[in-house]
């Protein structure tokens, strides 16, 4: 999918909900618990069970990024599934300071 900035996506297999903060100009699949995430307004709400191997979970209020692809989402409802893009798990965004040395 090509998600837009500010778009809300929900998990098809658990409670996870995220808001898109960054999305490159590319067609990517964001999954949660192994299943593609859906637009929150999509009437065909998903059903299914999360892949037990993808159950790292997400935390409310944390930003998750795919460092290679340029995807960043904000978790607005915590869930149990792993957030991933193209099979690569997203990681919690950490501080991005400029490298410094004396």
């Amino acid at each position: 999918m090509k998600a837009g900035i500010g778009q809300t996506l929900t998990s098809a297999v658990d409670a996870t909900t995220v808001v898109v903060v960054r999305w490159p100009d590319a067609d990517l699949e964001l999954t949660c618990g192994g299943a593609a995430m859906l637009d929150a307004k999509d009437p065909t709400a998903g059903s299914g069970t999360p892949d037990p191997a993808q159950s790292a979970g997400s935390l409310l209020g944390k930003r998750y990024v795919d460092e290679a692809g340029g995807v960043e989402v904000l978790c607005t409802k915590a869930g149990t599934g792993t957030l991933a893009v193209g099979g690569t798990p997203l990681v919690i965004k950490t501080a991005q300071p400029l490298p410094a040395s004396d």
Partner: peptide, 14 residues
């Protein structure tokens, strides 16, 4: 909000 305290970027001292 993004970079944090610039101190977090220090990689080498002396």
């Amino acid at each position: 909000a993004e970079r944090g305290d610039a101190q977090r970027g220090i990689v080498k001292l002396l």
